[in-house]
Design a protein around this nucleic acid. Structure first.
Lengths: 107, 107
DNA sequence: GGGCAATTTCTACATTGTAGAATCCACTAT
DNA sequence: ATAGTGGATTCTACAATGTAGAAATTGCCC
């Protein structure tokens, strides 16, 4: 049932961010986690646009956390977890046999 | 000196395809390798458009292989190898601590 | 010198990535 | 009660990447 289309890199990052932040997965927090782990700035608009698209595809859901101010918290759905795993599996096959440590030698 | 912009997923796949096919890395062959490993169809136009963009960024070079028909063979440059390694490193950090095998349980 | 198979180029459009300003929401101090 | 404030989300607009397939090219062989 999983949609055939592959995940974009930011889509993958955002989904991983949601998983990593668990119960606290609302937009601003996902943004912070992504910036922390990747070491790059992430614009908040990018996060929400992506979250909305993921929700439209049925990969995540969102709900207003009752009593938690204006926060909208997200969770990854089964279909999302599946496409994430698939994305990773395909990539792993492509990388198999390539030694990342020796890539710089390809100068 | 590597450009700061991240690689798209297809860009990464194509670069890996070039590395995997080595001396024989011309468009059609990269396409075949990608289809073989990913199990998905890849349109030839997508491959060339991506290859051209990678070349414009200085990540790969191309040359007409003399005596080899109309083939245009590609090779990954140092900057390309670097951005590939960086792309992978960031992703690995994001995946760290997430058990891919248990992702399906996130239903 | 025409046909053929393999390869590359071109064109056009869809999807994803990105930024930042505007808006909303609850809380608090006046 | 309301203006200010910090935190969060929504909106808008555009750039970059992904994708498909038809058209053009190339070299070869008859």
């Amino acid at each position: 049932m999983s949609d055939d289309a592959p995940l974009g890199v930011f889509e993958e990052q955002v989904m991983l961010g949601v998983i990593r932040t668990g119960e606290e997965a609302y937009g601003m927090n996902v943004r912070r986690e992504l910036e922390r782990v990747t070491g790059r700035e992430v614009s908040i608009g990018a996060v929400y646009a992506t979250l909305d698209r993921l929700e439209a595809k049925g990969y995540v859901t969102s709900r207003r956390a009752p009593g938690s101010g204006s926060r909208r918290t997200f969770a990854v759905l089964g279909a999302g977890a599946q496409v994430l795993a698939e994305t990773r599996a395909i990539r792993d096959r492509l990388w198999r046999g390539i030694d990342a440590a020796r890539l710089p030698e390809l100068a």
